[in-house]
Design a protein around this nucleic acid. Structure first.
Lengths: 110, 110
DNA sequence: AGATAATAGCCTTATAAAAGGCCATTGAAA
DNA sequence: TTTCAATGGCCTTTTATAAGGCTATTATCT
């Protein structure tokens, strides 16, 4: 299933399901995972149903030994050569000022 | 930097930073992103500092056109052939019963 | 088939995030 | 260098998650 075609809610549920699958593959109970993460049983249940905080997700991934998957996730964005040229080293710290009159914010992708 | 060696808090901040980088690469302001996601400006700020809910992360990734990164993240765990054999089709729905006396929960990885 | 641990679901209280607003700072455009 | 949008930081109220507990259901072991 393509994630783009799913609703946000659907994606949350899919994510929760994958976390659960990860846990079951290691044959760990929610209770054990709660103990390992110092989180409540409720927090584990909630995350597996798609709800929860980022910090909860991270703690669980660590306990499941799956933290490395965060590296493929949201990788440090690689920059294009031309952008690299524009920003001499430092890199942009703010989005472009909206000093233009138009609202289209026409951007040069490269 | 290896994510495993980082603290949970460090990981949250790293994630937030990458989201921000993603946004800046598109030259989108926090305000614009807030409008695009129907989230508050505060929610955007918070997420870029590492705090927030899963639903917030997903909404932002969608608005940034980066939802596909969720696929590399937490992929559907692939199962080993032997496990595939054990579970005839259905797949395990609960972690193994703790009917054993020991607490080690010695598991057959394969 | 029987027994029971694993999980779902709901409740209450505590804590954190989201929403909306205001002011101070500053990167970047002009 | 001047100017102002973009961002950070803090505050208050609202809303959602976390924590802790209890009961009902059922997958899985024996």
């Amino acid at each position: 299933m393509d994630l783009y075609s799913a609703s946000d809610k659907g994606i949350e549920e899919e994510l929760g399901g994958r976390i659960r699958a990860l846990r079951l593959r290691k044959n760990i109970t929610q209770k054990e995972l709660a103990a390992a993460t110092a989180l409540s049983l409720n927090a584990i249940k909630s995350l597996e149903s798609g709800k929860g905080k980022l910090s909860t997700l991270i703690a669980i991934l660590r306990a499941l030994g799956a933290l490395d998957q965060l590296n493929s996730f949201i990788p440090k964005p690689s920059i294009s050569p031309i952008q690299l040229a524009k920003m001499q080293g430092k890199g942009r710290e703010r989005a472009s000022g909206g000093r233009l009159k138009d609202t289209s914010r026409g951007e040069t992708e490269w």
